[in-house]
Design a protein around this nucleic acid. Structure first.
Length: 669
DNA sequence: CTGCCTCGAGTTCG
DNA sequence: CTCGAGGCAG
């Protein structure tokens, strides 16, 4: 480490900022730290010292101005009589077993452990005297934190007075955090009020505790879990960690229900693995598991190694968030001509996968989050969920970061772009835009539409590029010889594609309507139209007024459908499909009004053991039931499989009956 | 007119 | 899966 230079403060501050920014970049973006955490802290500390002595040198983009990182003198210091712990970390099974081996060696016996979820919030110490809350402070450096008593008093989970036999004095340690559901609600309210959004629950909770006006803290609806005690006077303390948790519960504190006593390190490992996969199902964020030796006597015997206790460690989950550089904002043109901005990211590994791209939804969303090309951004990816850009790291914004502007011309065909009033999306106005055509062909062949195997995005693009396809009806004129000339296409693959195209002719009217890319017409509306009109000719001849007659079809959809069939190119394409023998009639299957599930609405979620989603849907529909996409009060049953998501939670909160595959089969009879 | 309940559309990586 | 927006009942 370079020795502190004797430069003028202004120069040294500038130098420090550059060093810190580079360290941040190496750490967060390149994932290759060049300096240790301690060295980093030393740099930051030196910068803080200079800035405190020379406030005029503080720049808005200084690393010290980071939310939550800025030292503050707004709150009085709060000294912890018994220091608050820092924990050693284990990042994998090996680290955990090494921890256990050391405990066993030093203790001379196999220890039992208590596993607790590591809540991603703020560690606090609450002092109660004669059963009443006296004061509360943040963890700080473990010895001295900040006193935030008035703010903690408005946290509902924190009891003002203790229940049962209260000790003379007690420091209760725990975590202040924000529930995901409360965070979501708060951000929805802020969005509605046009205010900037909060990035994540943790920072929002931290900001909440640092409010000068406790009423603002109260608005954030913070929560609390207790998990330890510090100084303690009066009563004899419990002798094990799990008894201690039970005792805290008796005193009236919320204690996390998932804390579990484990007799061996194998059980500990199983607990960690389980919650690493199930963390999404919780209504609060966790970033790991805290493992403590259960016997307090044994804890005392093991003691400390420096600041860290030898009797506890934190198993850290793989991060779900990372910082990376937003290299550029690109634009996709969808089949409807919608321009969809997406982020081109410097590849970054999150939870074991490399993320290179993320959608940015629409222009308003980018503006709301103030995301600019060249920014360092926070990218979030939870479990198997699609990654998204949370927002920019403002203090790392480069001067040349570029404000996003929706282009005025289509990036593919250069036609004019139109953003209809009161809509958030912009559209390419050229219906013949090659990008749109590729997407329409791809959609035509996709599973929910004509289900032509072998034609995906790559082949669709090649067919159009080669001039073999100008509209979807051209697919039926393709010859194996033409296909075989395309890259990575042999005789065999070409024949398979031709066969698949041939096989698509008998899908029926509803699927054809889905496949045609008529605005607002997806599987459900296509089924309504097909059942009502019976043939493409009857539908094409229908006036807007006649279309509105159909249950579930309103003005907008009617207009879109009528408009589609008025366009001469569309009419021509349909004539050619007919000439090729594509079935465009609706099979007038009598839907049993007597089926076992008649009038019942189902929602599917998760993966069923032996049925695909399509197969389950078919069984339900055959029996007269209906499958819809979202859970509501009108839902009769939710069929849940493995890794069920938010729909299961919704069903539980609405009291909708939940069945598994066996339960569904039982209902089918 | 408001507040459900729906449906449509787009979505990343391996 | 989530968001935006259409349809419809109250």
């Amino acid at each position: 480490m370079a020795t502190t230079s004797k430069l003028a403060p202004a120069q040294r501050a500038e130098e420090l900022r550059a060093l810190i920014d580079e360290a941040n970049h190496n750490y967060h973006v390149l994932d290759a730290p060049e300096i240790s955490d301690a060295e980093y802290d030393a740099l930051l500390h030196e910068l803080v010292t200079i800035e405190e002595a020379h406030p005029e040198l503080v720049t808005p983009d200084s690393p010290t101005q980071r939310v939550g990182g800025a030292p503050s003198s707004e709150f009085p210091p709060y000294r912890h009589e018994v220091p608050m712990l820092s924990l050693s970390n284990a990042f994998d099974e090996e680290g955990l077993r090494a921890f256990d081996a050391r405990v066993t060696r030093l203790a001379g016996v196999k220890a039992a452990y208590v596993c607790e979820l590591k809540i991603d919030g703020l560690a606090m110490s609450l002092r109660y005297e004669n059963g009443r809350l006296r004061s509360a402070g943040t963890r700080g450096d473990g010895t001295v934190g900040e006193e935030v008593t008035p703010n903690v008093r408005v946290v509902r989970d924190v009891p003002r007075t203790l229940r049962g036999k209260a000790p003379g004095a007690i420091d209760v340690r725990g975590e202040i955090f924000m529930k995901k559901s409360d965070f979501k609600r708060l951000n929805e309210a802020r969005a509605a009020a046009g205010k900037p959004l909060f990035a994540n629950p943790r920072n929002t909770a931290a900001g909440g505790l640092r409010q000068k006006d406790p009423r603002l803290t109260a608005e954030r609806r913070l929560s609390f879990f207790a998990y330890a005690i510090g100084a303690f006077e009066g009563l004899e303390p419990p002798q094990t960690q799990h008894a201690l948790l039970a005792y805290l519960r008796e005193l009236g504190f919320p204690v996390n229900e998932h804390a579990t006593r484990c007799a061996s390190i194998d059980e500990v490992m199983a607990f960690c693995k389980r919650w690493e996969t199930e963390r999404e199902s919780l209504d609060y964020e966790i970033d790991g598991v805290v493992i403590k030796v259960d016997e307090l006597e044994l804890q005392r015997k093991l003691g400390y190694a420096g600041k860290d206790p030898r009797w506890a460690t934190a198993y850290k989950f793989r991060a779900q968030e990372a910082r990376t550089k937003l290299l550029d904002i690109g634009i996709n043109v969808s089949r409807s001509g919608k321009l969809n901005p997406y982020a081109v990211l410097e590849p970054v590994s999150i939870g074991g996968v490399t993320v290179r791209m993320a959608t940015l939804h629409n222009e308003d969303d980018i503006k709301r989050k103030d995301i600019r090309a060249g920014d360092t951004v926070v990218v979030h990816r939870a479990g198997d969920v699609i990654p998204y850009v949370v927002g920019p790291v403002l203090e790392l914004r480069a001067k040349d970061a570029r404000v996003f502007q929706m282009p005025e011309r289509c990036p593919v065909c250069h036609s004019k772009v139109d953003r209809p009033p009161n809509e958030v999306f912009s559209y390419c106005t050229n219906v013949a835009c090659p990008a749109q055509l590729v997407e329409r062909v791809r959609h035509y062949c996709s599973r929910g539409a004509m289900d032509i195997e072998g034609v995906g995005d790559v082949l669709s693009a090649e067919l159009i590029e080669a001039g073999l396809v100008r509209d979807v009806a051209d697919l039926y004129d393709l010859r194996t010889g033409q296909l075989a000339e395309l890259p990575r296409m042999g005789e065999k693959s070409a024949q398979n594609v031709i066969d698949a195209i041939e096989g698509s002719k008998s899908r029926g009217l509803a699927r054809v309507l889905v496949a045609l890319s008529i605005r607002y017409v997806g599987s459900q509306n296509a089924a309504l139209l097909a059942a009502h009109f019976g043939s493409v000719d009857a539908l094409a001849a229908a006036t807007q007024a006649e279309l509105i007659e159909v249950e579930g079809i309103g003005e907008q959809i009617a207009e879109a459908v009528a408009f589609f069939f008025q366009q001469p190119p569309n009419r021509a394409a349909i004539e050619r499909l007919r000439a090729h023998g594509v079935d465009m009639t609706a099979p007038k299957r009598e839907r049993a009004a007597t089926g076992a599930l008649h009038g019942k609405t189902f929602v599917l979620t998760g993966t069923l053991p032996s049925l695909t989603r399509e197969a389950a849907t078919e069984l339900i529909v055959e029996a007269g039931g209906k499958v819809s996409s979202a859970v509501s009060k009108k839902t009769d049953y939710v069929v849940a499989g493995e890794e069920a998501g938010s729909k299961l939670a919704k069903a539980q909160s609405l009291g909708v009956p939940i069945v598994d595959e066996a339960g569904l089969r039982a209902l089918l009879g």
